[in-house]
Design a protein around this nucleic acid. Structure first.
Ligand SMILES: [Mn+2]
Ligand SMILES: [Mn+2]
Ligand SMILES: [Zn+2]
Ligand SMILES: [Zn+2]
Lengths: 125, 125
DNA sequence: TTTACTATTGCAAATCATTCGCAATTGTGA
DNA sequence: TCACAATTGCGAATGATTTGCAATAGTAAA
């Protein structure tokens, strides 16, 4: 927590309520959270600000993003990992990243985002 | 082409103009196309119908989907592959899929979707 | 071929996620 | 404490995707 807040400050960003609160939620959750999920947990912060904070975190490489059902899901970048999401109920778990980057012809600065989907055993009757 | 059309018919789906035209475009393109991309190439078909056709193709497992800039990109499922997309200009290339599925704890019917992003050498000055 | 029936389409309106403009507020360093 | 720029909240705009419904077009049987 302090780590990342220091990091923000050193780069010239202010330490604001929205930034601290969103960060707090990401720290206490290892699941993939949508903007709406995050916003529900802090109605003191406007949804537009949640978007702005997450966009900043993305620029700074603090979060990784996955897509599911036409919305972005956010999770702090700790050890490289992805998520497996139940397509019936939305339940998600972390999955360590095993992807090894090749040398891509003519592309620089390559990143990847992966989402696994399936049916959790709860939803499997 | 005939292959897939037969397949549709055998499952009880009608062989309609929108379905044939969208399929035609997907067959002639190995890049990842958005609904808007596809729609531009066939203004004789309403955009809502393009969405419906692609949703059907998705259900039937005919296409794989990636996300980029808040929109879905579609490509026919031929050999398993993904795309690497230039985040500056949108140019994309195919990349063979090398991902090996593990055994996921409690999940069945696991699928994955991956998108690579980077900067193409054209955009690299 | 023609008919009859239903799936599918086009169109316009509705949804839903995400972004934006702008005036009011807040964090920071002096 | 002050001054000023960065950031927020709010409401409106945007853009992708979905939906309701009446009109249309495949299909299979007559
Ligand atoms: Mn996680
Ligand atoms: Mn392709
Ligand atoms: Zn489930
Ligand atoms: Zn490029």
């Amino acid at each position: 927590m302090k780590d990342i807040l220091e990091q923000l400050k050193n780069k010239g960003y202010k330490l604001t309520q929205p930034r601290e609160k969103v960060l707090g939620i990401l720290l206490h959750n290892h699941t993939a959270l949508s903007v709406q999920d995050i916003h529900k947990k802090i109605d003191s912060v406007d949804k537009a600000s949640v978007y702005r904070v997450l966009n900043l975190f993305e620029e700074l490489g603090l979060v990784n993003i996955e897509n599911f059902n036409n919305e972005k899901l956010y999770c702090l970048t700790r050890d490289p990992h992805h998520h497996i999401i139940c397509k019936k109920c939305g339940y998600s778990e972390e999955v360590p990243c095993t992807y090894e980057h090749h040398d891509f012809n003519n592309f620089d600065n390559v990143q990847h985002q992966m989402t696994l989907t399936g049916v959790c055993n709860n939803c499997n009757k």
